[in-house]
Write a protein that binds this DNA or RNA. Structure first.
Lengths: 240, 240
DNA sequence: TCAAAAGTGTTAAGGCTACACCCATGA
DNA sequence: TCATGGGTGTAGCCTTAACACTTTTGA
């Protein structure tokens, strides 16, 4: 890279990485994919999967590649969005490393199998991580916290909740997504009305699915809306 | 920087910059600060102010420094938030440059005076930029578009609108912020009720201000809330 | 006393919550 | 026929939009 690029001796080159906060729903738990670090720094500590951005790829392509390499997941079907950049000088003891954090959501993703890097990846329940206060490597605990809050907020005013469901899903499944992510139970009948009353949120496929017991449920797929208006608001709101 | 940092020959070091989308309100217009580029690439083209992140500063500190150097603005009082990272390989013809975009909002900011870099900075009305289809340097048009949408959305569910007002303001002034940024007029009496009914949005100072004509208006300052619940929703919403 | 802006009141329409109730299925 | 989850109906409450109306000032 040419030296005339920089405009001051105070400027230095940086390494740029992508880190992924990958969430899925397993049963009644929100899970995040972690990797136990095999090298220094933070050897042995859990971390978000990630790695260096390569020469000719966009940041998003880098995120998709890491998703494949570190998690064994094909990101094509997933919801993938950028969270933000983290670049405090001290965040990596090796030097200036700016990381771009991505948020990925998928439906009941498989346990990572031993590929190149994915062998020591595993799903951890978000709830438990919060309870036992596990500190992740680098500033990954903060990234995870912001990712979580982003997911919770986005459920309100976008249809991302469908990203946690398979391509066809019942309204109960969709409601479970909200209940697990928000940690509160919702009235099934009111939820149904809100969702069906929001144009573009979901559309009926015509199919049905048998539950283990009870009446068969209609199947839906994601609709065309990008934003929900009006939004589905969490009860309670926030205290002043 | 140590070479063992990278894990593949496909990895290269990058330059990291911060770019600023600085908005203010002047009269009935939303303005954004632009700089005409004095060097290649994109010589002469308007661009968002920005520059290289220095060795020992955080990304946010870099944004504050550029705010001072390129715009002559003390960022201490401003609302400053990160928008995201832009790092497509081709976005800068000189090589790999990842930029972290920041959004800054301030009340009726002064015209930049000739400091070091601020002399060719100027305020442009957002409306006009959109109308005449001006292309900014690099990918700054996209960054600006995303910044605008972020401002419009944030007005709904956070009290950021107060960032466009002085430390004390009338409800009419606050309403004007919404009207200009959203490009729609709002009913004064309903707006008043919504704002005063949202706990923590504003608090009365006890003072009053005389308008050019008419009854004096009570003064308010920003309250303690970070989020508005319920949000102030834009009319219309989005079509499916 | 008039214009202009601040601020209050009112009413009708629509949304939301809570809960009662009916439906379809497997066991 | 019972248990279970799917799905509909509804009464009361609350919010909202629209707009009429009062208040306070300077000219």
């Amino acid at each position: 890279m040419d030296d005339w690029l920089k405009d001051s001796d105070e400027v230095e080159a940086s390494w740029v990485t992508v880190d992924l906060a990958i969430f899925t729903l397993r049963g009644d738990h929100l899970m995040v994919l972690l990797v136990d670090r095999g090298v220094e720094p933070f050897l042995g500590r859990p971390a978000l999967p990630g790695g260096y951005v390569q020469k000719s790829e966009t940041l998003r392509e880098g995120a998709l590649r890491e998703l494949r390499e570190e998690a064994g997941i094909d990101g094509g079907a997933l919801h993938l969005e950028q969270l933000g950049a983290y670049g405090d000088p001290g965040r990596d003891p090796r030097g200036r490393v700016v990381t771009v954090a991505y948020l990925a959501l998928g439906p009941d993703l498989p346990v990572p199998v031993g590929g190149t890097d994915a062998e020591n990846a595993y799903w951890a329940t978000v709830e438990e991580l919060g309870r036992d206060g596990t500190r992740l490597a680098f500033d990954h605990s903060e990234i995870l916290a912001e990712a979580l809050e982003e997911v919770r907020r986005k459920l309100e005013y976008t249809p991302v909740a469908t990203a946690f469901c398979a391509s066809e899903f019942t309204l109960s499944e969709l409601r479970t997504v909200y209940e697990v992510v928000w940690g509160q139970s919702l009235d099934p009948s009111n939820f149904r009305r809100k969702v069906l009353g929001t144009t573009g949120f979901v559309e009926a496929t015509g199919g049905q699915r048998m539950p283990s017991t009870g009446r068969p449920a209609a199947l839906y797929r994601r609709g065309s809306a990008w934003v929900l208006s009006p939004p589905l608001l969490r009860a309670g709101g926030q205290p002043a």
